[in-house]
Amino acid sequence: MTLLKVENLTMRFGGLTAVDDLSFTANAGDITAIIGPNGAGKTTVFNCITGFYKPTRGRIGLGALDLAQMSGHTIAANARVARTFQNIRLFPRMTVLENLIVAQHNKLMRASGFTLAGLFGLPGYRQAEKAAVEKAKAWLDRIDLLGRADDEAGNLPYGAQRRLEIARAMCTDPVLLCLDEPAAGLNARESAELNRLLLDIRQRDGVSLLLIEHDMNVVMGISDHIVVLDYGKRIADGTPAEIRADPAVIRAYLGEPEGDAA
């Protein structure tokens, strides 16, 4: 079943066309990877899907919603699309636990009666906060950071920050999780752990994943479906095995000396 349907997506910055009439789909329950050489427009596609850019043209269908028409925070809040960033964006001076609680903001905001009930310490809000902490604890357990819950997020080692960012995105209860180069900067052991975590998210939480990645071990190891971009256009689309054998992909990666052959 199709979850995300990108149709004729085009994004121009002044004279530069970063994404050019791109169409692809991602199925519910799949791990879909977007790959391509540097500058192929992958992050721009992500920014369009998650509402940071308003596409020049095109439709991004998710269920009955068109994400291209929605802006900023409403995509995370209403369409339930969560994301992580290429250069990790945690709240560095807040604790690990607080990062996960902030992610549950909208739910807690309603529970706190938009602050009023919370100010007077009504039991409904206390319950909700307790549940939020339990959920955070469960995630901390899964990403192996339970012991560091009260440390500042900015003080965590790099790999742990990557995992925490994923857990934080998951705390928003998404249907689609978009990961922008989750394996960047991880060593072999950490990236194997990441693979397990992502598979586990799909299995246990039933969340579909969309990821941009250069690390081919991750891409080939876990994706069900791969979309290859070059110069903002789709040049191939298929299963890992099909992509590996696709001449257009090989040309894009190896045919140009300055291409990124990651």
Partner: peptide, 25 residues
């Protein structure tokens, strides 16, 4: 200690991340 207060501090730390979490800045 309420969600709104935590969201303020989160905004101070990183507005873009807040948007990605569905917080209306």
């Amino acid at each position: 200690k309420l969600p709104i207060g935590r969201a303020w501090e989160a905004l101070r730390e990183d507005e873009i991340a807040c948007k990605a979490l569905g917080i209306n800045p």
